[in-house]
Design a protein around this nucleic acid. Structure first.
Length: 524
RNA sequence: GGUCCGGUAGCUCAGCUGGAUAGAGCAUCAGCCUUCUAAGCUGAGGGUCAUUGGUUCGAAUCCAAUCCGGAUCACCA
C-alpha cells in the first residue's frame, strides 16, 4: 500500500483490506475507537452558512409527485449539509401571484356559487386546483365556440371572454383593487391550509417562507441599479434587457415595457434579500432541470451585478419524475397527486403489516404511526435512492416495493437488531481480542465507510450516496445475522463483539435514515 | 438549428477523477422457518456497457463522429 498508493483506491482498498492478514487486535481497536466516538460520522462545524431553497409551489394547484422528489431532496440535502458542519437554512418561495391564480379565481366566481373547502369537505389546495381545471375546460369550450363561429384559432384563444376577464383581473390585482385582493387572499389561504397538511404529513419544513407577491417588487429596484451600473440596457419602448451573447446565451428581458418585472428579475431581488437577511455564504436552489437555462442566466446576471455571493449560487438540478407512459401532463389527467400517493403508500404499508401479523398487540395510534413510518419510508427511499440529476421513471401500477433495495428493508433490519438488543442488554466493557470471521470484518469495514459516504453525499449534494450506503450496510448485517447467532454466540467474547456490532449498525442505520428524512421503527 | 443532459441485464438503477471476473434490486428458476422477526438469507440463469473510430500497457469510464431519447432557447412562471 505504501509503495503503490495510487493503485489502491475506492473499493479496491476495501477488498484488499479484507484479504490482508491483519491482527485481530487491530480490528478490535478500530471498533473501540469508532464506538467511543459519540459524534461518529458527524463533522465539526465549518461555520459556513448555507441556504437551501426547495418546494416552490404554485398556489393554483395541489402538489404532485415531482414536488415530492423536490421536497425530499431539498430536506435531505439540508440535513446532510448540516451533518457536515454547516449552518443550514431551509427556504421556500411560494408563487402566489400571477395569471395562474387569477384563472382559479375567475372560475370560482363563475361556477362556485359561494362554495368553500369547508362546505364541500375538500382539502383547500385541491379545492382551488379543481377551479383551475374548470377554468381550462370552460376556456377550451369558449375557444371552440368562437372557432365554430368562424374565428381563426389564434384569435379565438386571445378573445375568449373568460381569458379576457382573467387578464383584467390580473391588472386589477396589480392595481390593488380591494375585492380582487380579498378574493385572492381568501383563495390563497385555502391553498396554504391544504399545503400545511401535506407538508406536515411528508415531514417537510422551512425556516423561512418567501412570497412572490412580496418579492416581485424587489425586481424593479434591481433593474434600476443595474441600469445605473450599465449592466442592463433600455430600449425605446422602455423594456429593459441584458445582453448575454458574449457568454454564449441570448439577450434576455428583465423588465417589460409596462414596467412590470419578470420571473428572472424577482429571483435576483430574492437572492439579494437572502444574503442580507441571513448572511449566507452559499445559496442552493433545488429546481427541476427544465430550468437549467434560467438558473444559468440568473447566476450570470448576479455576477454582472457583482452581488456579493454571486459565485456561490448553485443550482441543484434534478430530473423529472416520469411515468412509464411518458411525462406527467395535467391536461391529460396523468399527474400523480402527492396526497393520493402518500395515502396509497400508507395503506399498502397497512396491508403488508396486517398480512404478516407481527404487531397484533399494537394500539391504534401505534399502528397508525407505524404505517406512516413504513409508507413514507418506502416512498422517500424510492425517490432518494437514485441520482437526483437523472430523470427517473415511476410506475404507479406496480406501486412501490417493500422488498429488496427499499426503505422497509432497511427499517426491517433496524427493527430486528432492536429486537435482539431488547433481549440481550449491551454494556461496554473491555474484552479480550477474539479471532474475527470474514462477515464480522465486513461489517466493521462497512461501518468505517459511513464517514466518507456522508462527506461524499455533501460534496455531491446527493442523498443517494447515503441510501446506497445504508442499504449496503443493512444487507451486510443481514448476511452476518443469518449465519451467526448473537445471543448464543460461541464464547462470551464473541457475544460481546457481536452485540457491539449490532449496536453500531443500528445507530448508523438510524442516523443515515434520519438524513434521508426517514424514521425507523422499534418493531414492525 | 444553437446549447445542455442522458443511452449499462427483460424492468428500475449503481459503477463514469481509467485498473482485478461490469454490480444491486425487481422479475424468472432452485433451495432455507422446532433455533435472536422469512418485509429475511443462500444459489442459478440473464450483458456486443447505443454504434464506430481514437488515446492508453489497460476504456463502461477519457476524446471525436454518428444514431436514438429528453430538456431548453417567451414582454409565462
Amino acid at each position: 500500500l505504501q509503495d503503490h498508493p495510487d493503485l489502491f483506491t475506492g473499493f479496491n482498498i476495501i477488498k484488499g483490506f479484507l484479504n490482508l492478514d491483519i491482527a485481530d487486535q487491530y480490528w478490535h481497536e478500530l471498533l473501540q475507537a469508532k464506538y467511543a466516538d459519540e459524534q461518529y460520522g458527524l463533522q465539526p462545524s465549518t461555520g459556513k452558512k448555507v441556504m437551501v431553497e426547495y418546494s416552490s409551489p404554485n398556489t393554483n394547484k395541489p402538489l404532485h409527485l415531482g414536488h415530492l422528489r423536490n421536497n425530499f431532496l431539498g430536506w435531505s440535502v439540508a440535513a446532510i449539509l448540516e451533518a457536515n458542519g454547516n449552518k443550514v437554512f431551509k427556504s421556500c418561495i411560494v408563487n402566489d401571484r400571477g395569471i395562474h391564480i387569477c384563472k382559479s379565481m375567475i372560475a370560482w366566481q363563475m361556477f362556485a356559487d359561494g362554495a368553500t373547502p369547508k362546505s364541500t369537505q375538500t382539502k383547500g389546495d385541491h379545492f382551488v386546483g379543481d377551479y383551475y381545471v374548470k377554468f381550462n375546460d370552460e376556456y377550451k369550450r369558449q375557444v371552440l365556440e368562437l372557432k365554430e363561429g368562424g374565428m381563426p384559432e389564434k384569435e379565438a384563444e386571445k378573445q375568449a371572454p373568460i381569458m379576457l376577464a382573467t387578464q383584467q383581473m390580473l391588472q386589477d390585482w396589480e392595481a390593488g383593487k380591494p375585492e380582487v385582493m380579498a378574493l385572492w387572499t381568501k383563495m390563497n389561504s385555502w391553498v396554504y391550509e391544504g399545503f400545511d397538511i401535506t407538508y406536515k404529513k411528508i415531514g417537510s419544513d422551512f425556516d423561512k417562507t418567501y412570497y412572490e407577491s412580496n418579492t416581485y417588487l424587489l425586481g424593479k429596484k434591481t433593474v434600476e441599479e443595474g441600469l445605473a451600473k450599465g449592466v442592463f440596457e433600455q430600449e425605446a419602448d422602455n423594456s429593459v434587457w441584458i445582453d448575454l451573447t458574449a457568454d454564449g446565451l441570448d439577450r434576455k428581458i428583465v423588465q417589460r415595457k409596462d414596467g412590470t418585472s419578470v420571473y428572472i428579475t424577482q429571483d435576483i431581488g430574492l437572492a439579494q434579500q437572502k444574503y442580507q437577511e441571513y448572511g449566507i455564504d452559499e445559496s442552493i436552489y433545488v429546481i427541476g432541470d427544465e430550468q437549467n437555462y434560467h438558473m444559468k442566466v440568473l447566476k450570470l446576471i448576479a455576477e454582472k451585478l457583482q452581488l456579493p455571493n454571486a459565485q456561490n449560487i448553485y443550482h441543484l438540478s434534478y430530473g423529472m419524475v416520469e411515468l412509464p407512459s411518458g411525462k406527467m401532463k395535467s391536461r391529460e389527467g396523468t399527474v400523480v397527486d402527492a396526497d393520493d400517493l402518500v395515502d396509497e403508500m400508507i395503506s399498502t404499508a397497512r396491508q403488508h403489516t396486517e398480512e404478516l401479523g407481527k404487531v397484533k398487540d399494537f394500539t391504534e395510534p401505534e399502528l397508525a404511526e407505524l404505517y406512516n413510518t413504513l409508507g413514507l419510508g418506502a416512498m422517500k427511499f424510492y425517490l432518494l435512492r437514485v441520482d437526483p440529476k437523472k430523470k427517473m421513471i415511476f410506475n404507479p401500477e406496480e406501486s412501490i416495493d417493500f422488498h429488496g433495495f427499499t426503505g422497509p428493508f432497511v427499517q426491517y433490519t433496524y427493527a430486528r437488531i432492536r429486537s435482539i438488543l431488547r433481549k440481550e442488554p449491551f454494556e461496554v466493557k473491555a474484552m479480550e481480542a477474539t479471532p474475527l470471521l470474514k462477515l464480522e470484518k465486513e461489517i466493521i469495514v462497512t461501518l468505517e465507510q459511513f464517514e466518507s459516504a456522508l462527506q461524499q453525499a455533501a460534496k455531491e449534494l446527493n442523498p443517494s450516496v447515503i441510501a446506497i450506503y445504508i442499504f449496503n450496510l443493512a444487507r451486510t448485517f443481514n448476511s452476518f445475522y443469518t449465519a451467526h447467532s448473537i445471543g448464543n454466540a460461541e464464547t462470551p467474547e464473541k457475544k460481546q463483539l457481536r452485540l457491539q456490532l449490532a449496536v453500531m449498525t443500528s445507530n448508523v442505520i438510524k442516523k443515515g435514515m434520519q438524513l434521508l428524512g426517514i424514521q425507523v421503527p422499534e418493531r414492525m
